[in-house]
């Protein structure tokens, strides 16, 4: 499928007289590109330009940001949370993706279970975690009843609660691309490896895992970028110091200091772009999406 089109897109004009063919895909995406430019890119640029143009052309906001101790703290905290959540979704999501990839009759049911959280609002899920993780919530009560604890643990209103809730909310974004990549793998490859004497672990390490990497990379990228912008969940289940960059942005928006809010947003956007660029360089994420899109 896309493999056939992709070379034409990537290496255009190699065949003389075929140029008009190149135009077809461009024409097909043109409406969407125009739509995104007019209704997304331009407003975003207008907003971001406030960081440089308000009240007059200036770099003062960026200078303020560079010396803003609170910003440094929050930025580090946001990045750390993002790393932990990405790792958490990967560790929990990969086995589920394997199950999904192998499922036959159970597939619709499993898909519904994975997708169900998608259809529930983040707000509702965050409140649900407040109820579950509280000192007298289900988790603590169960551990107490089983005699695993003497006194309830404090989980709610700590960074741990933020990590648990965010992993739960973002898991589908990790599971689906990996499951997709796993389903592409020709089962005869694993059988051939086993036939050549590889044990199950060796088959996984040397065949399945490398072939699923494009899906893994796509999942990591999605979760990483989405986590960077989290607001509601940390605000509801986090502790006193669990402030994220988007919470800081919202605070400045409310204070009507939109120039500084735009400066912070520019930094957040740049961080996301840098991460995407690194992934592109290191792992060729374009390939990841092409393969997992099948």
């Amino acid at each position: 499928m896309s493999e056939a089109i992709a070379p034409a897109l990537l290496a255009p004009g190699r065949t003389a007289g075929m140029n008009w063919r190149r135009l077809v895909p461009l024409l097909l995406v043109a409406p969407l590109v125009l739509f995104m430019l007019a209704l997304y890119a331009l407003p975003v640029l207008a907003m971001l330009s406030r960081s440089l143009l308000e009240p007059a052309p200036t770099l003062a906001h960026y200078a303020e940001l560079a010396g803003d101790e609170v910003f440094h703290r929050i930025f580090t905290n946001t990045l750390w949370t993002t790393l932990v959540v990405t790792a958490g979704t990967l560790v929990l999501g990969y086995p589920v993706a394997m199950g999904l990839a192998r499922a036959r009759t159970l597939l619709p049911l499993l898909l519904i279970i994975v997708l169900l959280p998608f259809w529930t609002s983040v707000l509702v899920r965050s409140y649900a975690w407040m109820v579950l993780l509280g000192r007298h919530g289900l988790v603590n009560e169960a551990l107490l009843a089983m005699g695993m604890l003497d006194r309830p643990l404090r989980i709610l209103n700590t960074p741990l609660a933020v990590h648990i809730a965010m992993v739960h909310i973002l898991l589908p974004y990790m599971i689906l691309p990996i499951a997709n990549a796993l389903r592409q793998i020709d089962p005869s490859l694993a059988r051939a490896a086993a036939g050549l004497g590889a044990g199950p672990w060796a088959v996984f390490r040397q065949v399945t895992l490398p072939l699923s990497m494009p899906g893994v990379m796509a999942g990591i990228l999605l979760v990483f970028v989405l986590s960077l912008g989290f607001y509601i969940t940390p605000a509801l289940v986090g502790g006193p110091r669990d402030m994220t960059l988007s919470m800081l942005i919202a605070q400045r928006v409310e204070q009507l200091d939109w120039a500084y809010a735009a400066t912070l947003s520019a930094v957040l956007l740049a961080t996301a772009l840098v991460i995407i660029a690194i992934f592109q360089r290191a792992f060729g994420v374009g390939t990841a999406f092409r393969m997992s899109a099948r």
């Binding site: 409140y127 407040m130 509280g134 007298h136 404090r154 209103n157 605000a235 509801l236 006193p240």
Partner: peptide
């Protein structure tokens, strides 16, 4: 009181939930 404040809330529903859950 810093050490004893487990939550600096920002939405009216939160303190009510924390009281209800004995948090």
């Amino acid at each position: 009181i810093k050490r004893d404040v487990v939550k600096w809330w920002e939405t009216g529903a939160v303190p009510v939930q924390l009281l209800t859950d004995r948090e």
